[in-house]
Simulated assay, not measured.
Amino acid sequence: MSKASSPIKLEGLSKARGKRWDHLELLERIDASGSISAAATAMGMSYKAAWQAVESVNNLSHEPLVIRQPGGSSGGGTSLTEYGRRVVATYRRLEQEWAAVPEAVGRMMDDFDLYYRMNRRFDMQTSARNQFLGTVKAVKIGAVNAEVVVDIGNGAELAAIITNDSVEHLGLEAGSEVHALVKAQWIILAVDTGFKTSARNALAGTVVRCQEGAVNAEVVIELPGGKTIAAIITNESVKTLGLKVGGKATALIKASHIILAVPS
């Protein structure tokens, strides 16, 4: 069966509505205004919700769709990458060509594959604050459990410990595409990694958001390459660690706290 007539791929088109189009409009407005604050205001979204949406699409893409521009005399801003503009244009072209499927799909098959892969990623709904798209680098089978090493891009890796049965059930092997999920409450933050810990994973980056609540705070760290990871810690811990925007921090994650998932 050809790609253009594949019922599995065409099924994704019927789901491309609702929340994903909110993300798409947000990306378009960021591209037009150069400001995530202006884009959020125009859409009636909170600044935090807009940033969470941006962080989500960046983490679920092999390449960043949105980047922060350094400050300066102009105050900096936010913009789409060339890859991000291509993704937005692809979605819009496919929306316009909806009535002409499958003929239109056959004319732009390469971009349809890009569209379909992105669409499937946004179909998954979980309570985990952190979701990373990656590729399985290695699977080490033990007596009961296995260590699965996932490449999440730009030299960053996550090692997860899951059962051998789960490896078989998910069909994991080197080269497989997989989602790594981590709840924000499971992440330990450190500002000095000159000590040994039992955490298998350490992701170092720059604090880009630190929002305190009544008891806890959400701290968002930007990793090299543009992906982000969010942690929930106490306000007291924020003060003890001296965490602030622009400072360096490391997210420590136990391998047993990483959940792996693949599209059904």
Rank of each mutant, 00 (worst) to 15 (best):
A249G: 03
A184S: 15
A4D: 03
K239A: 15
V219Y: 00
K137G: 06
G247V: 10
L114D: 03
W98Q: 12
I30P: 02
A255L: 05
R29G: 01
V245P: 03
V54L: 04
L181A: 05
F195W: 09
K248F: 13
V66E: 00
N119W: 07
L170W: 06
K244T: 15
S14F: 06
E55F: 08
G72D: 10
N119H: 12
V57Y: 02
M118Y: 08
I36C: 03
M109C: 06
V139R: 01
A50V: 02
A249S: 10
A190I: 06
E218N: 14
V136Q: 00
Y116M: 09
D123T: 08
I233W: 02
D111T: 10
D113P: 00
V219H: 01
A255M: 04
A128R: 01
K244R: 15
I259R: 03
R85F: 09
V245M: 13
L158E: 00
F195D: 08
A99G: 12
Y115Q: 04
E82L: 13
A204H: 09
S74P: 03
A42N: 05
I259H: 07
I188L: 14
W21M: 14
T228E: 03
D151H: 03
A190Q: 12
L26V: 07
S33C: 12
F112R: 01
S166K: 06
A251H: 00
G155W: 05
G34S: 12
P64L: 04
G75Q: 12
I36L: 15
T163R: 09
I152S: 00
R20S: 12
I36E: 01
A42H: 04
E168G: 11
L181T: 02
S73P: 08
P64W: 00
E236R: 13
V88C: 10
D113T: 10
E212Y: 06
E95I: 11
G34N: 04
T135F: 01
N201S: 08
R209L: 14
A42Q: 06
G77Q: 05
D31I: 04
G72V: 07
P263C: 04
K248V: 14
A16E: 06
P263K: 09
T90S: 13
F122R: 04
L158S: 00
N154H: 14
S198V: 11
R29E: 08
H62G: 13
A143E: 13
G134S: 05
N58G: 03
T206H: 05
G76N: 12
N164Q: 12
M124S: 07
G77W: 02
L181Y: 09
A89T: 10
V215M: 11
E147T: 07
D151A: 07
N130D: 07
L24A: 08
Y47I: 14
D123C: 04
L133A: 05
M109I: 14
A159G: 04
G194L: 09
I162Y: 00
T193Y: 09
L181P: 00
K254C: 04
I36K: 00
Y115H: 08
G142I: 07
L26Q: 01
E55S: 11
K140R: 11
L133E: 01
V54Q: 00
E103V: 14
L203A: 02
M124Q: 08
G77K: 02
Y47S: 14
A159K: 07
F195T: 11
V178L: 06
S37M: 14
R107F: 10
F195C: 05
G155E: 06
A199F: 07
E168T: 15
S166N: 11
I232D: 01
L133F: 10
A255V: 06
Y116R: 05
Y115G: 02
S237T: 12
